[in-house]
Design a protein around this nucleic acid. Structure first.
Lengths: 345, 345
DNA sequence: CTGTTAGCGCGTTCAT
DNA sequence: ATGAACGCGCTAACAG
């Protein structure tokens, strides 16, 4: 550690020192503030000569336009905000990646916050986000508090809800049906001849709907009662999956295990193999997410793929379209899913 | 898909429709705009009776304060922006998680962008971020273009550089030495009796410095030449680690493999075991990151732990201190690292 | 405790 | 092609 130097910005309130404005630049270039504004927004509206002088002045002063003032005057913030349950979950961060890539290309920036799967926190964050007057907003999921809906509708900005699907979104929706994934997974398991099943599920309403879909279909066909292990709140990690599988195995379980994420599934796989069990002979595993490691586990993981990057981009496209005033695009887009058959089930 | 409904916000430019302002609320409550402002910023400065009326009016109108106008007037944006190489990399997203948690508690919001390990893009993003007049900024790494440094210093805002360390940061620095991690890893490997080594490294300057530290120390002690596999740009995934290990094994390599991430290391482990090799007998593996799955791999992964959540929080604390005008705190904080000894090496 | 007056730095309109 | 005037919605002094 080193003692603080006193050379950098001592006690200088941000933005106070040397506020270079368009007026400053204009003065130096011998033009008015408006001309500087024009030079920046549309260089063709300014004579080549003054343009050069303005650019020199900008260079000399290190002027950086004040987007806050610009947003206030134009009523356009060039800001899109996003709310996701968790930023450390690859599922959501890869969505944001695709989303932000596309909106940035269109001159927008992204502000993100985490809701931690908590509706109350989501409602609070919506309020703080709305205060920044975003030009659009991305929400995860389709269930929001009445207060949240009210605020969103009052704000009258384009909104896109993702990672789930409904025919009656607040504005637009890009996602897929979790229940159907559960059903399809059960169908697949049944087709493979499985007659015993268990579930390992994270504390997440959407994961639970996948699980419920799976259980409903599987139980209806086999009459079997299905053991369910539910995680307490917190990320569903490989370690938790491993523990859960250990628990099932200790109870003598043999059959197919339906996991709410590839992480858990991987853990389950590891535990089964660590005990010398045959996969998928003794124990079969289905995951969810098709993460990049899924094809490299031992054995490769059978899972459900949702194209997250494409979904993020589709959500961005829908939002940008709305911001651009396009109202004839579909309200709801179902991006679907796909069961990826590999060795584990 | 469903056709667009025309009930929501048709062609209404954001922010235009029904702009409820403090003046609106004040009118309804029978007070002036300033009083509304006071009621919101410090309720004790307003009589209980008018406070009630103001709150009723806010409730009735659904008023949401305009933070843009507030920021312009107060010269405080309550915004902290962050630049990370990649948001989908758990290493950085967990940092952001800890960081944003803490700044939010202090009333700040976070805007993030990805630089994709590209200095030019970082420079561009710094400019756009600065345009929003953030009250502080978080940067990943200590190497920035001259233009970037100039802009940052010109902006005169608190800046914290993380995930690396230097005695001469732009403002503050919270991190650790990558070279030392390489050296320490080599020392550990040597102490375990290893005399043959190879490296698997992602396309990331900091990962390369860890590798260089490792190679320098290991080669100096053994005189061995060390095979190096370097990934092309793109995320270093489990799959890539597996491929790299396959390549080494095909060349007949036996010994210790130093990987730039736990993901790669895990892939390497899987490949070695898939070939029936003994770990750590035939092949030993050291990772980096101590991700949550590291203790559950087969065998458990020996790796290097850096407390990312704590680093994020330390960075936030440093930044908040600077924003608060504290200048006597240390310029540089070394959070260190720790070799986590498990079964793989 | 409350109101008045002034900006904050820009975009927008209307002139020229 | 350029400028003057105005306003975006709020906070920051000062009065009273």
């Amino acid at each position: 550690m080193k003692k603080s130097s006193s050379s950098y910005n001592d006690a200088a309130p941000a933005q106070t020192r040397g506020a270079v404005t368009m007026a400053t630049v204009g003065r130096m270039a011998g033009v008015s503030q408006v001309t500087v504004s024009r030079a920046l927004s549309d260089p063709t509206k300014v004579s080549p000569d003054t343009l050069r002088r303005i650019r020199d002045a900008i260079e000399a002063t290190g002027f950086v336009p004040n987007a806050i003032a610009g947003a206030l005057a134009s009523r356009k913030s060039q800001l899109i905000t996003a709310l996701v349950p968790s930023i450390t979950n690859i599922v959501y961060s890869s969505l944001l990646h695709g989303f932000s890539d596309l909106i940035r290309e269109h001159g927008y920036q992204m502000m993100v916050s985490e809701t931690g799967f908590d509706p109350q926190q989501e409602t609070d964050m919506i309020a703080t986000h709305l205060a920044r007057r975003p030009d659009g907003m991305l929400l995860t999921g389709i269930h929001h508090s009445p207060a949240a809906r009210r605020m969103l509708i009052g704000a009258a900005i384009p909104v896109v809800e993702i990672w789930d699907i409904t025919e009656t979104p607040i504005d637009r929706c890009v996602g897929f049906s979790h229940a159907q994934i559960g059903l399809a997974s059960a169908d697949y398991a049944l087709a493979q001849g499985h007659r015993h099943a268990a579930t390992i599920t994270a504390c997440d309403a959407r994961a639970q709907r996948r699980r419920d879909g799976f259980v409903r279909r599987f139980a209806a066909e086999t009459g079997a009662d299905i053991r369910a292990i539910d995680f307490p709140p917190g990320t569903a990690t490989l370690g938790h999956g491993r523990q859960a599988m250990a628990q099932l195995l200790d109870q003598g379980f043999r059959g197919l295990v339906y996991c709410s994420s590839d992480q858990c599934a991987h853990g389950a796989l590891i535990e089964a193999r660590a005990r010398g069990l045959d996969v998928p002979g003794d124990i079969a595993v289905i995951g969810f997410g098709d993460q990049d490691f899924a094809e490299h586990t031992l054995p490769p993981l059978t899972t459900v793929k949702v194209d997250r990057d494409a979904m993020g981009k589709a959500a961005a496209t829908a939002l940008l379209g709305r911001i651009g005033g396009q109202n004839d695009a579909p309200t709801t887009i179902d991006v679907g899913f796909q069961i990826v058959t590999r060795g584990s089930a």
